[in-house]
Structure formats: C-alpha cells, structure tokens
Design a protein around this nucleic acid. Structure first.
Length: 556
RNA sequence: UGGGGUGUGGCCAAGCGGUUAAGGCAGCGGCUUUUGAUGCCGCCAUUCGGAGGUUCGAGUCCUCCCACCCCAGCCA
C-alpha cells in the first residue's frame, strides 16, 4: 500500500527507527472509535492511517470500541462502525475489542494505585473540583481528601462501585500535581459514578473509567506499540505516560498525535452531525448529503476513492482545511476510470424522427465503458425518443452550437445524426415536442455531405426506457467554514441541497441496476441506485457527483 | 501574563544547511474528442509568518517578535 516514492511521514519515520533499533519487534496500531455516532470522512483518515501503518510494516491493527461512557454510547453505533470499517476495505486483527472488556482489570489497577498512595477518593463535587483546579495561569490547590488513608479510599471506592454512593458526590482521582502547568495533570478523575446501564455490561457497573485512565492501559493490554490520535490529545500525553509508568501494565505503548482532517463546506464533528439528524435537517446518518462514511457509500462514492483521498493527505501536525474539491477529484478520478456508462434523460423532451416508420426498432450497441473491456449494452432505437430539454434551443447561437436547434444537426450518442425540423409548444409556451429527421448512414460515421454535427446528445427510446426518480445533491452548507468562530453552523445550511427530479427516463439496461455499482450517466454525472428509497415499483438514483464542466450557460 | 502545538503559492503539501523552492487540488490558456467528460501540452512563489544574526552558502541553525490551534468535562 505504501508508495515507495512518497516520503515517510513522521510516524512512519518513528516506526522505521523503532523497528531498526529493536524498540519494537512488530508494529501494533488500533482504531479506537467511541460508539456515540457514525463515522465520518475525518475518521476515514484515521482508519486509513492506522490500518495502513500496520499493513506497511507487517503488523496488526485492532478495532477497539472506546466505550467508557454509557450515557452516549449505543449498540446501533457499534454495528454501523463495524460495517463502515469493513466497507472501507480493512480487516482488524482478531476479534473486535471493547474497552468494556477491560473494566475488571482497570478496576484492579485503580485499587493498586490507591494502595500505592497514588490515587484517592475525592468528595468534592463538580463545582468545587473546578474551583480547586485553578486556571490556566494559576495553580490549583490540593483537595482536602487528598491525603486520606488508602484503606479508607479503598472502602469508599468499593461502595462507589456497588452503587451505594450518589452520582456526582465522589470520584476516584490520581494523585499527581495540582500545581502542574499542564492542567491534565492536576489530579485527574479516574472513575466517576454513573448509574447508567452500559450497552455491553448492562448494570454490572456503577462507576466507569474516564478516558485518560482507560486509553493507555487498553493499548498496553493489547500490546499496541504506536497509539496514534489527533492533536487535541497532545496535552493528555504526559498523563497517558504517567498511568503506563505507574501501573504494572504488560507493555509500554506510546502516543503520537497528527492533525485531524478538516474539510471546507462540511462539518466533521459527531456532535454536530448528530444534531443534523436529531433535528431533521437531514433524514438520517446515512443521508447522502452527510459527510459520513455511510452517507458517502449510499451516495455511490467508491471505498477506494475515499482511500486514495486519505492516502493523499499529509500526516503531520498542521491543522489545515482541505478543499472539498480535493475529495471530489478522487471520486471523479476513480469513477471515470471504472464506472460503467449509461444514458438517462433527466428532463425528457420528446423527439419524433419523422423519416422513420412508426414501428421502427433497431438494436444499437454501445460499450459499457469507453476504454475498459466491460462488454456491451443494447440500446433500442425507435421513432420516438427523449432527449434532455436543456439540449434543445429554439434559436441557434454560437453559444448553443452543441445543442439541437431547428435546421441544425446533432449526434445521438452511440447512434445516428439527426437534424431538427420544427417543434411544438404548449399553451404555456414550453417546447413539448421536436420533430426531426434522421441523417442516413451516420451510424459510426460522419454524414456524407460533410456537414458534421457540432454536439453529441444523450437519449433514450420512448417505448423502451424505464421511469426513475433522480436525486441531485448540492453541498449541505453554503459557507466554506460553517462552524468557524462563534457561527451557528445551522445558519449555513443550504436549503437546496437536495433536488428531486421525477419523471426521468433511464435506458433499458438500467432496469436491473445494482445498488453497489455507480454508473456514469453520460453528460450528467455519476449515479447509483438508492438502497433505501428504491422498490420494485420505484427506482431512485442518487447523484454521486456531477461531471466537471467548463460549460456555463449564460442567457445571451 | 501558564503549558502544549503549528506557520512554505487560493487550498493541501515536499523540503532533514549547498544546482534555477517537488507534487497534487483549484484556476487560466491551447490541442484532441460520438460524453462541453476524459486525455494531452503549457502557464501559475525572485521566495518560504516577521525582524535580526551565524555561515563561503539558510526555507532548513540561533535570537527576538507576530499570528493561529489545543488544554481549566465527574466528554472522548
């Protein structure tokens, strides 16, 4: 997977050195999501990084759910996350792991620290603890419970665990340094009381370990060598190391931080994404407009495109904002190379080819792909066809030279050249039918009179097409930085992010389109059949992404 | 006014003291084209947050300054 020509990032350099110096024999990484929401594009970067590192250096990568807060976590999320990681194409080492598997061990280690005089049960409430903690510029002061005897803390801890103590009234804290310039080290909470059922351990526990007391030890238990996380955890690293050093853990993992992915015109925060779903701004976590893995999958984005995009991202400590066009580039690149082609008319306009008999039916063939050998499809060609309303203009102008216009010719994609004769309007003044003539002997060749058509237009047979609905998407937010500063990201929501096109006409071969394949609807973009809204009677296609276009239609 | 990070073209980014500062995205020209797609060709930083300094030589080393991000949850 590693591209030899690419320079090693700082984590790869560290691993290379650790392997060379024998600091580690084998690399073990892990992807540790909290099951409190669906995975998004930012997680994809972390997934590709962690699994990629293991792959490149012949090691293992674990999938471990960091489920230490039952108030926010649900089994629905763990199932969705498992599916997303697999879909992206990665396989974790061994079974799926859970922080909750280690609750017993963690509890024993907590008691060990108490016995060592390095932890204590504190009876300060949340507000008091905040006061005692000090500020960024002033040191904190010691809790009055800090020097309480170990066996007293042990007894209290046991009561906390049994559920005999009220939530919020006691915590177990590490005894480190209330005057540390690093606030994380000012006697951090190790255990808090939560009388809440856990998605895996049920009501077995009344206390749950805090992230800082759990993560490093989980890594140590699993033999993780390189624990890669995002930048905001950098100030937690000394605490991560403190627990690992002060506990009889089976191995010594190390934490490395890299800059998380930020994408413009998007939000990549599980909290905000959850809000979009909960408040109905989108219909679900896998709504095709969501920057979630499941949303992109449903929209037709290939997993490999996401992987290529992630691989193109720098693993560094800079926190930049990547332009969405970068992601779009990899999606188009992959789809252009591999998506089968098809024709679908989004805004049908009937064209009657008058010099063809009423019952004319000719089976034309067209390649599934212009370059790849993917076989052919048949295109029934009849007297009546549909082209896109946008592809016909009443008046010719240089601007519209590639469109059909009276007296001018156009090539039907994969078919003949036709020439428009006249057209019919309805009461509203809209063109509802075009009458045209077929220019003979133009299948695969130019007209004999050398008057070549300037443009190519996609079409379907009126009698041999299938009805469908097409969902067109625009970005979910109009603001490049919807959640910057003190902005409310909801204010930036694009009210026109979804456009439902009904009465669309797809070529016959799309009758049995598969949800797992994304097609290029020629001259329109990439589309895949929606896995939720489609039924036997109704076909719905989601737009993955439009084709690039330098064509801007002006009204002159 | 504490601690931890980061600053290279519109965006991302390589560069690890020594030819004229990689590459990708976006943009702009041109060619090809039965997808206004794709492909191909060309253009796009006298300069690396700023100011000093060290050196024959600095984006790369030193000093000071500036800007931005993270940390004061019994969230992760």
């Amino acid at each position: 997977m590693a591209d030899e020509s690419k320079p090693l990032n700082f984590i790869q350099q560290t691993i290379t050195r650790d392997l060379a110096e024998g600091v580690v024999d084998k690399v073990v990484t892990r992807f540790p999501p909290e099951p409190n929401g669906y995975l998004h594009i930012g997680h994809a970067k972390s997934i590709c990084l962690n699994f990629g590192l293991a792959e490149q250096f012949g090691g293992d990568c674990n999938l471990r759910f960091d489920d230490t807060n039952p108030e926010k976590e649900e089994d629905e999320y763990v199932q969705a996350i498992i599916e997303d990681v697999q879909w992206l194409g990665f396989q974790w080492s061994g079974d799926v792991r859970y922080a909750s598997d280690y609750f017993g061990q963690l509890y024993d280690w907590a008691k060990y620290l108490v016995q060592e005089g390095k932890a204590y049960v504190c009876e300060l409430n949340a507000e008091q603890m905040r006061e005692y903690r000090g500020t960024l510029t002033e040191p904190g002061k010691n809790s009055p419970f800090r020097e309480r005897p170990a066996d007293e803390s042990l007894t209290l801890l046991e009561q906390m665990k049994k559920g005999d103590v009220d939530e919020g009234s006691m915590t177990l804290r590490a005894k480190i340094d209330m005057a540390s310039p690093n606030v994380s080290l000012r006697d951090p909470v190790m255990y808090r009381i939560k009388k809440v059922p856990h998605h895996r351990t049920g009501d077995q526990w009344n206390i749950y370990p805090a992230y800082d007391f759990a993560h490093g030890q989980e890594d140590a238990i699993e033999g993780v060598t390189h624990s890669v996380c995002t930048l905001e955890f950098a100030s937690n690293r000394p605490l991560y190391d403190w627990f690992v050093e002060n506990l009889p853990v089976p191995s010594t993992p190390h934490q490395y931080e890299f800059g998380r992915l930020n994408l413009n015109y998007s939000v990549t925060s599980k909290r905000k994404l959850k809000q979009l779903v909960d408040e109905g701004h989108v219909v679900s976590w896998d709504d095709p407009r969501m920057p979630t893995i499941s949303g992109m999958r449903r929209r037709g984005v290939p997993a490999v495109a996401i992987r290529h995009f992630c691989d193109s991202l720098a693993v560094a400590k800079t926190d930049g904002v990547v332009d969405i066009s970068q992601l779009e580039h990899f999606i188009r690149d992959e789809l252009n190379k591999n998506a089968p082609r098809a024709m679908t008319v989004l805004r049908p306009l009937k064209v009657v080819i008058s010099n063809l008999p009423e019952d004319h039916l000719e089976q034309l063939t067209a390649p599934q792909h212009p370059e790849l050998d993917m076989g052919n499809r048949t295109l029934p060609f009849t007297r009546e066809i549909y082209i896109d309303t946008e592809d016909f203009k009443e008046e010719y102008s240089k601007k519209f030279k590639k469109k059909l216009t009276p007296g001018k010719r156009i090539r039907l994609r994969n078919g003949y050249v036709i020439e428009a004769d006249d057209y019919v309007k309805n009461e509203a003044g809209e063109v509802v039918q075009v009458n045209a003539s077929l220019v003979p002997d133009t299948l695969g060749k130019d007209p004999a009179d050398e008057i070549k058509p300037k443009g190519v237009v996609h079409w379907v047979s009126v009698q041999h097409c299938v009805d469908c609905e097409v969902h067109l998407y625009d970005r979910l937010f109009n603001d490049p930085a919807p959640d910057a500063g003190d902005k409310n990201f909801l204010d930036a929501i694009n009210p026109a992010s979804l456009q439902v096109m009904t009465g669309c006409k797809a070529e016959q071969s799309l009758a049995d389109a598969e949800e797992s394949t994304t097609y290029q609807f020629e001259r329109e973009g990439y589309f895949c059949k929606d896995r939720k809204n489609s039924s036997a009677e109704k076909r719905v296609f989601n737009q993955t992404i439009a084709l690039r276009s330098v064509w801007v239609e002006a009204d002159t």
